[in-house]
Simulated scan of single mutants.
Amino acid sequence: MSYSPSIYKFVEGSDTPVPLDMDVVRAVLGPYEIGDQTLTAMEDGRLQYWVRAADGSEAEIFVDEAGIQVERPHSGSGVFAIVAELASRLEAVIFEPREGVFLCATEAHVHLPADMREDAVLIEMTGAAVEAALIGPQPL
């Protein structure tokens, strides 16, 4: 099944996501880019990445100032570790679209709007924890 988790950053309880630090985004995603790096910046200013982790798991990632869309992440904690690193370094939350909940570490949880905080799921920002929260535990 195709799904697209998203990453957003909130500050001080505002219900509007704040712009992301694009230098952090580039630093995290750049080493994993397997597409044509000359095409990373789109004409409209958004960034697009096709990333592959060491375990072979991949995802297409689209970035603008308001958020990050993770398209079709493959099962494998490698790509989810990249997503976790993005969320952690940006102090952001991951929106899980099927359940409609925010996944976050404690640091980001305190910045969510009060109504979102109630339904947020606190997790450790690791590849395994993000993968389990998004698609369920994987068999060994």
Rank of each mutant, 00 (worst) to 15 (best):
M1S: 15
S2L: 08
P5W: 03
S6H: 15
I7H: 02
K9C: 09
F10V: 07
E12P: 07
T16W: 11
P17F: 10
D21K: 04
D21L: 02
M22G: 04
D23Y: 13
V24R: 05
V25R: 06
A27T: 05
G30N: 04
G30M: 07
G35D: 11
G35C: 14
A41D: 01
A41G: 00
E43N: 01
E43P: 00
R46W: 03
L47A: 07
Y49H: 10
Y49W: 14
Y49D: 11
Y49L: 07
R52V: 13
D55L: 10
G56K: 12
G56P: 15
E58A: 08
E60L: 10
F62Q: 15
E65W: 09
E65R: 13
E65P: 01
A66W: 06
A66T: 13
E71L: 12
R72L: 01
H74D: 15
H74G: 13
H74T: 05
S77H: 15
V83R: 03
E85F: 00
A87H: 00
L90I: 01
A92E: 05
V93M: 04
V93A: 08
F102M: 10
F102V: 11
L103V: 05
L103Y: 01
L103P: 03
A105H: 11
A108H: 11
H111G: 14
L112I: 06
A114I: 13
V121A: 13
E124S: 13
E124D: 13
T126I: 00
G127H: 04
A128W: 11
A132K: 07
A132G: 09
L140T: 06
